[in-house]
Structure formats: C-alpha cells, structure tokens
Design a protein around this nucleic acid. Structure first.
Lengths: 208, 208
DNA sequence: CAAAATTAATCAATCGATTGAATAGTTGTG
DNA sequence: CACAACTATTCAATCGATTGATTAATTTTG
C-alpha cells in the first residue's frame, strides 16, 4: 500500500483485461481506470498499448524454456523425462488458463507480428525440447516408432484444450476450472490421463 | 457477374477479415470496402456488425451435428464409428482452419455472449456424440476403461492444435497448411496418427 | 532546485450506426 | 396497357462516441 507502484498495477489490470476482453477489446482508458492510474502513465511507462502487452508476454514467457531444458538434462529415463516435462507444462498452463487463452488468441491473428513471433518462438522452443526426448527414446528402442510431431500436437493440444474449453464441456458436469479447488483436481486428472496415454502408446509392443 | 448479390459478397469479405484480423480488429468500413458494398448495406441486411458475424457462424455450424449423428447410428463397430467420426471431424476443421481459429477466439472471450453460446453449444453437441460412442465401447468391453472426457480433450485438442498452430511448428519443416496440396498431406497424417493412437490406447490389454 | 512522476485537457483518427434521399423492381388498379 | 402505389435496394453524408496518443502544466521526490 505504501509504495503505489503504478507500473505494476497497470500491468496487473492490463493482463486481467486483455485476458477477459482481448487485446482489441480492451481500451487504454479502462486499463487506466482499473489500475487507478492516469491514462498518460501507460504511455509514460510502456510507450504504447502494445508496449504493455509485450511486457506482459515477456514477463510470463521468461523462464518457461529454461525449466524444460533443465528437466531434459536430468538423469532420468526418457519416459520419466517426458512425463516430467508434460507435468510441468500442464501445471504451468493450467495455473493461469487466462494467459494461455490470450497467447492462443494472438497466435491466430495476423496482426501484431511482433507478438506473434514472440509467442511462436516460445512455443517452438518448448516443442524442440519435447521432440528431442521422444526422438532419443525411439532411437534407443524404449519407445515405439511413432509420428513424433503429431504426438506432440496431441500432448500440447490436450493440455490446451483442457485449459481453453469452457468448464462444463471438457470435464465432468460439476468441475469448474475457475474454482481453485477444482482446478487442482482437473490438473491432476489431466496429468494422469496423459501419463496413461503416453505410457500405453509409446511402450514397445511385447508380442508379435 | 450478372447478379451482384451484395449480401453474399459482404459475408465473404467479412468472413475473410474476421478470420484474419479478429472480430474487434475488423471494421465495418473495411468489410464494405472489400466487398464493394456501401457501408449501410451491412446494417440493412444484417442489422449490425455482430449480425454479420452471427450469420457466418450459423451458416457454418449448421449440418455439423447432423453429420456426426448419422455416423453414430451407422451399422459399424464402436471403433469403426469412432474413427469415422474423427476422420469426419478432422476433415471438417482442416478444410477451413481460419474459421476454426475464429470460433476458438470467440470461445475464449467473455464478450458477445450470444456467439459464445452458439459456438459452445455446437461443440457440446459434437462432444456428446463422441462420448456416447466411447462409453458404449467400454461397457461392451471392446474398449479399455479410460477417462473418456480427457480422451475427447485429446482428440479434439490434437485436431485443433494442428489446425491452429503456425505451419512450421506442428508439422515438419516444409509442410504448410495454407498450401492446398500440403493441407491434404497434413490431414491424412493427422487422421492416421489419431487412428493409430486410439487403436493402441483403447484396445484392451491381452496379457495380465 | 532539478528530475521524475502524475495530472487534466485535448488531439486527430476511427469506430459502428443512422439519416434522408435516390434508384430499381414489383404489384395493384382501372 | 398505362399509370400510380408500394417495396426493396443502394447511396453519400454525417452522427455521436470512443479510440490511442500527446500536450503542457502541476506535483512529488531526492
């Protein structure tokens, strides 16, 4: 309370509004109003509305890749690595589904190429880490030979789908991802499902 | 050429612009300009900008569910039904990825509740059809007992991920979903992957 | 005091929507 | 058939509101 820190409060308000209303749907006036700051403070600190957006993205994306990289270098079996990466990835996305929605939206728009590249590169980085692990597992013989790119689309798509779809569509009838308790349940269920799926699918066939 | 049919040309231009720039990012002036119609024609025919959007959605969503329902009533095994539904679903979405992106965007925004409900209900309808097929397969014993909702998230998420992700991220390095020839290749690859995945995952374990 | 932070007021541009009038096509009437 | 009445379509012009951004003045801070 002491230190106003308008800069942070602007970012907070902006992130919430962007998440809820989209980039175009959010006005700088509303950001100012919600954060208790004057309109000019937005341009004073971030240069422009787009500057605010970029700052939010940068802050959130940072550290995402490092985490995955560190796991991929752990002393684990390929399957253990893969499952750990997925668990990490799912937790990261589901702990803030709104942000993930926002990133997804920007990724499907041809506007704002700078944001597009940022999000795209971040995703691409995550992708190569996972791809490498699966590739290693296949060449080692501990994984079946599968379409790696498509399998990654399955993993990321599943997580994304759970994070994005409106509550009652994806999960049972009562669970709501906006409820904190339910969110933990959903996350666990998602991770358990992916572990089961990948274990069954990637484990080499015994017979034949 | 004879008949101008401004109404259709407005819808065409609007769909292209909405897909590319998003709903908020598209102005009625640009729709008018691109379609060669006067601005007021938009309100004359559709009442409002949102009316244009709703018309596009309605047109596209219509028939989606009937198709799936008819398949689910075919005389096929549960696995055959499931695979056929998925093949249909994938083809439908990948033949017009832009539209799917647009639907997805609207689904992640709290604005425009009418659109939201339309898209959501459409998806929910598709979901129950698939869910019923898998449920039947499980009770019959031809499928393993799995987390049905999560598996559906996997199927839909995979298709969605392939349709939405920028070309070079999801598929190999050369394939581009915006190229018509490549699109066919990607679609086939996606369907083959899902068939393989579901067959392996749902087939009951022989040993143990 | 000087620099940084904050404010109210205002900018030009653009937004979605509406207006009233003009044109074209159809229908009704004798 | 002829002419009036009516409906549907199209248009330029403009509406008030809102957009992101900027200005210049003021306050706070070190």
């Amino acid at each position: 309370m002491e230190k106003a820190d308008k800069k942070a409060s602007i970012l907070d308000a902006a992130e919430r509004l962007f998440t809820e209303l989209g980039y175009e749907g959010t006005s700088t006036r509303q950001i100012a109003k919600d954060s208790g700051a004057n309109m000019s403070m937005i341009n004073y600190y971030f240069g422009s509305k787009e500057g605010v957006f970029m700052e939010i993205m940068s802050k959130r994306i940072f550290g995402f890749n490092e985490q995955l990289l560190s796991i991929s270098q752990d002393k684990l079996s390929h399957m253990e690595k893969l499952l750990k990466v997925i668990e990490n990835y799912a937790n990261r996305i589901l702990c803030n589904p709104g942000l993930h929605k926002m990133m997804h939206r920007e990724l499907t728009l041809s506007q704002r190429p700078e944001m597009f590249l940022k999000v795209k590169n971040s995703m691409a980085n995550n992708l190569v880490v996972i791809e490498q692990i699966i590739d290693d597992g296949i060449t080692e013989g501990s994984f079946r030979s599968v379409d790696v790119r498509m399998l990654i689309a399955t993993v990321m798509g599943t997580i994304s789908n759970v994070a994005i779809s409106p509550a009652k569509i994806t999960y049972g009838t009562t669970l709501d991802i906006n409820n904190e308790d339910d969110k933990a349940v959903i996350t666990d269920r998602l991770i358990a499902h992916l572990k089961d799926l990948l274990t069954v699918y990637l484990t080499p066939n015994n017979d034949k």
